[in-house]
Nucleic acid binder design. Sequence first.
DNA 1: GCAAAAGTGTTATCACTACACCCATGG
DNA 2: CCATGGGTGTAGTGATAACACTTTTGC
Lengths: 234, 234
Amino acid sequence: MLRYHKQTRILVAIDCIILGFDGHDLKLLLVQRGLEYEKGKWSLMGGFVQKDEDFEKGSARILKELTGLEGVYMEQLFAFGDVKRDPYERTVSVAYFALIDIHQYEKQLNADYHAEWFPINDTPRLIFDHQEMVDMAKEKLRYKAAFHPILFELLPEKFTLPQLQSLYEGIFDCSFDKRNFSRKLQSTKLLIRQKDKERLSSKRGAYYYKLDKRRYAANFHAFLNLIPNPGNLK
Amino acid sequence: MLRYHKQTRILVAIDCIILGFDGHDLKLLLVQRGLEYEKGKWSLMGGFVQKDEDFEKGSARILKELTGLEGVYMEQLFAFGDVKRDPYERTVSVAYFALIDIHQYEKQLNADYHAEWFPINDTPRLIFDHQEMVDMAKEKLRYKAAFHPILFELLPEKFTLPQLQSLYEGIFDCSFDKRNFSRKLQSTKLLIRQKDKERLSSKRGAYYYKLDKRRYAANFHAFLNLIPNPGNLK
DNA sequence: GCAAAAGTGTTATCACTACACCCATGG
DNA sequence: CCATGGGTGTAGTGATAACACTTTTGC
């Protein structure tokens, strides 16, 4: 069914920037490439867009193939179209980023891929333009996280305020005043304090919180000033 | 040079959402389609990505073909990949939006295309998913304009504060207090008041302003709270 | 009892909003 | 001289940021 004549048809790939948070650092999930070219080198998890598959289906398939996870937060990042970005054959790539609860992942790893988590600021050399994709994802995540409560996607169901704060501090690479941070996050009304405490990382213990899922859904696109001095972003 | 075997190659198009401001309304430039299918129907200006062309080159080529303009602000909006979005043959489309000074355009229209400006909120029925693209562009423009001084791209070199304000009011579809607006915009230090005035739309005349290009370049990505109550955005 | 992390209140500053009057000019 | 749109200042309010001490408990 080639209806537009004399036009170039091009391979279309999807690459996934899969991010997780281990309680200390933001991590990136990479695989050792299995495709014929550049075999063994580190790359983002990716794949070609199939004949009957749109981008959402494709990105979900690719994520599931590697992690077994479904229903995860994913967002289109950018379409990369440089002519030589894949030196073997021209391929345009639509990059998606996914935010996952890293602990969920560990349970259902697909052993067919050699995959590994790397601290996002200390990754091995990546193939093609994948480093550019990662850099753009970091920037976009920062930008969004400054105004929207998106980082909860990286946390387990129950989490503590100190955990939440170190997540924000890791992403914005600076430290916040814990009183102001606590007040600001509580004022969103998105958090529900639990009765129990997390007692591994301190003697006194820190209260667990859960998301108020109703409010979270309603406020996902709302503007919340979540970090101090957002004017210093770029 | 087909190196990845058994993979589907797909047509890749670029569609341009070309926006201008005529002093009153935000306008969208549409063309009557010349391609074999859906001939005569209104659509965004678009074209296929060529063999040796990346997205930036392609979008610039398409914009220039229609308007004769170069060096215009363009930004990737989103990649659309629905399987059936083009019913004739599967085509993924990378949408770009361009902000142009509408008066420049009028001088160098390409008569080969039947092109016309429409108020962005009152467009004819568009082919394929082009309306979805337009809606997304409107939303993104609003979002960006609330924090970044992007709307100057739509204005001529010299403009007045009342003109600037009606641009913002058009885009955000509400009216602002002119004292607060003026103060806020002046506080960005991006404006340089000229000696002369625009005297067509009022007897007293309104001062012309120019952009301080140095500062503008430096602040293009900076955060400026340009509109009241940005929390009401989504 | 002490070290280590959690939790909590107050104050000063700044940014934002709401609001009303005078100015310049062409007719 | 008056109608039209342009330009400017102030005061009240709310949000933000800076800051230090007390609590808990495992060792």
